[in-house]
Structure formats: structure tokens, C-alpha cells
Design a binder for these strands. Structure first.
Lengths: 215, 215
DNA sequence: GTTCCAATTGGAT
DNA sequence: GATCCAATTGGAA
């Protein structure tokens, strides 16, 4: 049972996407998810863990030049969203009154994120599992999957291709610009593997445009 | 000198685009335009005119289902724009204190608009001169030229493909929807003659989207 | 001047 | 939920 743990292990992708920090305290509720792999992982307890070291600088495959948000403080009480989900699929939530501490799970401990390989000019790294799963017949979906593999979700949410404000919404502040080197690697990968309309090939930067907007 | 006329002759396209009505009174000023053809036409006075008949219903090639604006009453005094232009290119404006009456020039009198031919399913009519001049290598430009040939400029300015409001500007009222039959004819013509990306071919209606917006 | 471009949005699929 | 779609905008090309 999860409630017997005082540490929650977070795989690398989730770690990146959520912005959790090692030894942060969080409150979790466990849902009866239909995903068998997740259920088995919980039952087997075969995962190997590594102790995160907050002092040791972590070598990120995709250089994180982005300003990280200050860690949100509301993490202790986001019950509302979860209850809404539980009411929909008859989940049996398990409450744990003791806050759990965050651990970052090693990449080797998950089969979802294995070895990362460089794409394009080699600045961007993506898990081979992601790369092999991509359906190259859809260059838009391929682009989005690569973007999500290269950039944390919260970075995509606050970024755009150019970093320029929308001309239609001059009042809104401009988002950050996605690292052009990483974007270029994605563009190279997509153009090499997909049938991209001639117009978009000529203006290669526009390939990723439609994909960046969605958070 | 233009000032000796009391009637101004308007070719068919200009007639459609401006919304001028026969026997309307307007005030004009003549600019020293760099276009030689215009200057020669003024000097030769070889054009043949027809008397407009406001009572006889005109047979429009492209069915005008659009609500025509009430004729603007400011037509007598739009000096401001013209003076701004004259100050830029050393034009010699010729003022005429007598209002001129509008005549619609016959199609045969202009070499710009000759016989119109149906395109697509035959609802839309475009001048053969426009059709032959189109560069089919650019499907976007071809689409725009066809749109401009089929629809009056003021209709394009107040219309959109779907007639739906922009989701990004819910406050703004929706524009009119362009006649789907005429749009379909344009789409057919463009897809038949141009290299259109597969995605746009599958969703044929989106071909004209980017072209409709600009007035 | 025309054409192109990318950001943003909510509804539709 | 993810994806697609079209309307609107001002500056850039």
C-alpha cells in the first residue's frame, strides 16, 4: 500500500513536467487507473531508486536555459481536480494524511524512459522509446511528440517559437522563446522522416509553429 | 480635360467594387498617375459608352446574395485621403467643382474585363483575362486572384469563409459567410490547377481560408 | 501596395 | 483528454 511509504518516486519525465523538487512534500491520492502497467508497477515494487542529490548539479540532456517557476505552494491541496476524476470512473481513492517526500526515479528504473538519443544536430535528446513510437505519417503529431519529449510541459506552456507577442493580443506579454537549437533539431528530424508540404520545408521554422501553442 | 465632362465612366470591375450606382453624383480629382495606360485612355477618348438602365435588372454573373450596404453619403468629400497621396508623389490635382454622374462602362470597352467564363461547377464566373494571367504555381495567390475576381472587394472585406466569429475575438460581430457555391468553384479550380498540400486537399474548404481574411 | 508570418482563442471533432 | 480548425491582428518581407 502506498500509505506505508513516506517517499514518492517520480520518474524522470514526470519530474521534469511537474517541476517537483527532491524532498518536496506533496499530498497524493492513488486512483484505480485502468492502465495495467501502472498497477503492476505498484504491486511488484521492483523499481530501483536512487537518492537524489540536490547539491550535485544535474546534467540535463536538453539544456534548461529557461527560468523555472518558483515552486507552487498549492501542491498540498489540489483535491478538487482529483475528486472530479474519481467520481467519473469509480476509482477508490486512498487518502494518505502524511505528506510524502519526492524522489526522482532513475531513468533505468522505468521502461517508459530509457536511453536518450540525440536528434538533428545533436542538441536535443529524446528517449528511443518515444522515437520508435512516433507515427511519421503525421508530421504534426510527430512534431508535438518530439516537442513534448524535448521540453518540459510547463516550458511549452509558457513558450512560443519566436518569443514575440501575438500581434492580435498586444496587451498580453510575450512568452519565452523556445531554444532555437532544440527546435531546429526537431525540425530536422521531422523533415527527414515525414512528408512535409513544400511550403513548410522552405520555411522550416514554421513546421513547429502549430504545435507549440498548445500547452 | 476631365473638368469638361459631366459624366464619369466606370468600368465594370470598379463599378462592382465601389458600389457606385448609375446617376449617382460624385466628386473626383484626377491624379498624375504613373500608369501610362490610364493616361493614354484619358487622352485618346476612344472609349465607347453605354447608357446605364437602372430599371432593367442587371444579370450578374456571380449571384449577389449579399446585402449591399446602403450607399455611403460621404462620397462627396473624401478629399483627405487623396491629398495625402498627392503630397507624396507630386501629383497635380485637378479640382472640379461640378459633381459628376456615374456611368457604368460596357465590358467590351475595357480590355481588362472581357468575356467571363464559368469555373468549377459553373456558379462562379471569372474574366478569361484573369484566368489566363494566374500563376498556378502559387495556390495561395491563385486563390486570392480568383476570390477577387468572383467577389467584389467590399464583400470580401466584410465576409469570411464560415461566417463564424473569431474565437479569439468573441466581442467582434461575425462577418457574412461567402457564398459556399462560389467558394467551392474556386476551390475546385485551385485544386485542379495547383499543387496543393495533401492536407489541404483533404480539407478542401481550408484552401481559401487564409485568402479571405485580407480585404 | 500585396503577401507572408506567427500568436491567441474557443468550439468542434 | 488530444487534435483540428478558422478568425483576427500587426509587423516583417
Amino acid at each position: 500500500m502506498i500509505s506505508s511509504y513516506d517517499v514518492v518516486n517520480v520518474d524522470t519525465r514526470t519530474f521534469n513536467e511537474t517541476g517537483l523538487q527532491p524532498r518536496e512534500s506533496i499530498m497524493i491520492r492513488v486512483m484505480d487507473i485502468q492502465n495495467e502497467k501502472v498497477k503492476n508497477a505498484n504491486n511488484n515494487n521492483e523499481s530501483t531508486f536512487i537518492e537524489p542529490n540536490v547539491d550535485e548539479p544535474q546534467i540535463e540532456p536538453n539544456n534548461p536555459n529557461y527560468e523555472e517557476n518558483a515552486i507552487e505552494e498549492k501542491r498540498q491541496s489540489n483535491r478538487g481536480e482529483q475528486e472530479a476524476n474519481s467520481s467519473m470512473n469509480n476509482a477508490e481513492p486512498i487518502s494518505n494524511s502524511n505528506p510524502l517526500h519526492v524522489r526522482r526515479m532513475s531513468a533505468q528504473s522505468t521502461n517508459d524512459i530509457g536511453d536518450e538519443v540525440p536528434i538533428g544536430d545533436g542538441h536535443a535528446m529524446v528517449p528511443v522509446t518515444v522515437l520508435t513510437a512516433i507515427d511519421w505519417k503525421s508530421y504534426t503529431k510527430a512534431t508535438r511528440l518530439l516537442l513534448q519529449a524535448v521540453f518540459p510541459r510547463r516550458v511549452l506552456a509558457k513558450s512560443s517559437l519566436t518569443g514575440r507577442p501575438s500581434p492580435a493580443f498586444m496587451g498580453k506579454p510575450a512568452k519565452d522563446m523556445l531554444d532555437p537549437l532544440l527546435v531546429e533539431d526537431i525540425i530536422i528530424t521531422v523533415t527527414d522522416n515525414c512528408e512535409v508540404p513544400v511550403k513548410l520545408v522552405q520555411k522550416r521554422s514554421s513546421i513547429g509553429t502549430q504545435m507549440v501553442t498548445g500547452s
